[in-house]
Computed example of a mutant assay.
Amino acid sequence: MTRFIPVYGTKGGVGKSTIATNLAYAMDAAGARVALIDLDITGPSVPDLVGGLGGTPPTMSRFRVFPGVFAGQGYCVVG
C-alpha cells in the first residue's frame, strides 16, 4: 500500500462507511487499485453495504492480510 484515504469521525450514523464504500468503488471505476478496510470497533457495516460476505473472504498468510473480493472490489473487515 502506497497511499491511503482515511474516512473517520467520532459521531455514529453519519455515513462514514457509505462514503468510504462509494469512494472505493468510484476509484476502482477510475482505474485505481483499491482495497477497503473497515476498522469499526462498534461493528463493521461494510459487509452490509457490499452485499454480505460473498465472493472471496479476506485471508491471512505469514502475518500479511489479503483482502477479500466482492464484485471486483477488495475489502477487509476488522471489528
Results as ranks from 00 to 15, higher is better:
31 G>R: 06
67 P>S: 07
47 P>G: 04
11 K>H: 01
50 V>S: 07
9 G>D: 01
9 G>H: 01
10 T>G: 14
55 G>D: 08
47 P>S: 01
14 V>Q: 07
10 T>A: 10
78 V>M: 15
38 D>A: 11
33 R>K: 14
21 T>Q: 04
43 G>M: 10
78 V>N: 14
42 T>A: 13
27 M>L: 14
21 T>V: 12
4 F>R: 03
15 G>A: 11
6 P>W: 03
62 R>F: 02
64 R>L: 00
12 G>D: 05
53 L>Y: 11
78 V>I: 15
68 G>F: 05
27 M>N: 05
1 M>G: 11
3 R>W: 01
74 G>K: 13
7 V>S: 02
22 N>Y: 09
42 T>D: 13
69 V>Y: 06
13 G>D: 11
75 Y>K: 03
4 F>I: 07
15 G>N: 06
53 L>G: 15
62 R>M: 09
71 A>C: 14
72 G>S: 05
26 A>D: 06
57 P>N: 07
54 G>K: 02
62 R>C: 01
26 A>M: 03
56 T>P: 07
8 Y>V: 09
44 P>Q: 15
33 R>T: 13
30 A>E: 14
65 V>K: 05
26 A>S: 13
15 G>R: 11
18 T>D: 00
2 T>M: 12
4 F>V: 09
37 I>A: 15
42 T>H: 14
16 K>S: 00
34 V>C: 02
57 P>V: 12
17 S>E: 01
2 T>F: 05
29 A>I: 08
45 S>N: 15
15 G>E: 05
1 M>D: 06
70 F>M: 14
76 C>I: 15
71 A>M: 12
21 T>N: 06
15 G>H: 09
12 G>A: 06
58 P>W: 06
38 D>L: 08
